[in-house]
Design a protein around this nucleic acid. Structure first.
Lengths: 226, 226
DNA sequence: CTACGATTCAAACGTTTGTTTGAAACGGAC
DNA sequence: GTCCGTTTCAAACAAACGTTTGAATCGTAG
């Protein structure tokens, strides 16, 4: 009926073409710097199409992030549940459940993966408070569950230090993914960001070792027994 | 005739007032979203003052970052040299030389430290290629020296893995510093970002453990002997 | 065919942007 | 006092922004 489906047409849907174009331009120039005229031109659509399909530029922005973020968080949680059900999963497996879904999407993004990666990095840096709140709420469930899952396997840590170490891990991952071009430039091409399998292994080994480190002594003595 | 502002002291230097206002507004709303009219009004200066003192908005942006970044990199390198001269300094001391100067500046920023922290996070995410190149060059020297300094103390790592682990560390630090408000919200106030002494200890312990981890096996076999 | 909802289109809306201008005001040197 | 380089000021510039509008176009059902 209304669903005119899967033919190899150039762009079956203006809506989808706008999302693709916006995602690409956002990652290249930032959100504010990507005008609706640039986006609609890239999408081969009319300027007014954005307001017809999304109501406003803000609506487009939210749709761009929601399209990518929701499946990502769902896959992370699915893999985390699989860890718990397996019973034998250690810190490394939980870490992989957190990192791998992101890296896989970076790899699968058509334009070399740069677009999606930089987009995620942009998410928490852009000015719009409305967007930031949406992303924080979206991310909060994931963060809480992974912190709990890691804490079960790292009972020697205080809750406070567990939370800190999780955010250290998330930061390392986010930085590598969104600034991978910097790594390549600094290493004179020695570190190939396209090799996501190696990168995943490197990252998990590094983070697991950091997470497993003995509890920090001398900090927050007032709350922690010696 | 001096226009006596109600609360702001008569700025001895318009130039400095513009830098302060720009830094504050950049960190709050991003670079693109901070118009010259907002900046000059906040600084109590005329709209044209930006072009008189900095030539353009781009010039102002570069000046804002250069003012903070150069002393930061200099202090980092100074502390790194001190590590080498001491002879006894381990991975933890080198890490502290990298992290502490940034944390100290975050703490010393008047507006609760948020401004400077978010500004640094914004640096690598904003669209301007010109600014990004400037920051990359500024950061390259520091990165190379710290990678070398760490590699001396971690000879079991390949150069490739050493570089990766350094960027993991830089990412964890950058994320914590620029997204500290997120950590506080997620931890329901349990993790106080204002407590930089504890944070520094937590971070160094975590990163040192990650850096010291045994070399990753199975990755890049073609380049590394088993 | 006509008719209708869904979608696209070109053109314009008012606002805001970075930048430019030329004159006014300043502060020492002479 | 006059002079001169430095700095500030109000006003205007063209360009670009997000948004709105009303008519044109499409695909399909009656």
């Amino acid at each position: 009926m209304a669903v005119t489906e899967p033919h190899t047409e150039p762009h079956v849907d203006t809506r989808e073409a706008l999302l693709d174009a916006a995602e690409k331009l956002f990652s290249e120039h930032g959100i504010q710097a990507s005008s609706l005229r640039m986006i609609t031109q890239q999408a081969g659509a009319n300027l007014a199409a954005v307001h017809y399909h999304f109501g406003s530029k803000e609506g487009l922005v939210r749709a761009v992030f929601a399209r990518r973020l929701r499946p990502l968080e769902e896959e992370r949680l699915r893999l985390l549940v699989a860890c718990d059900e397996a019973g034998e999963a250690g810190v490394e497996q939980v870490l992989a459940a957190f990192v791998a879904p992101l890296l896989r999407r970076v790899r699968e993004t058509p334009e070399g993966g740069q677009d999606f990666a930089r987009l995620m990095g942009l998410a928490f840096m852009e000015p719009s408070e409305e967007l930031r709140s949406m992303l924080l709420e979206e991310f909060r469930t994931t963060a809480d569950r992974f912190i709990a899952g890691l804490h079960e396997r790292l009972p020697h840590l205080s809750r406070q230090e567990m939370i800190w170490r999780f955010h250290f891990s998330a930061g390392a991952m986010a930085h590598v993914v969104s600034c991978s071009q910097m790594v390549e430039r600094f290493s004179a091409g020695l570190c190939k960001c396209g090799d996501h399998e190696s990168l995943l292994r490197y990252l998990v080994v590094f983070l697991a070792s950091g997470l497993k480190a003995p509890a920090t002594m001398g900090a927050e003595l007032q709350g922690e027994p010696a």
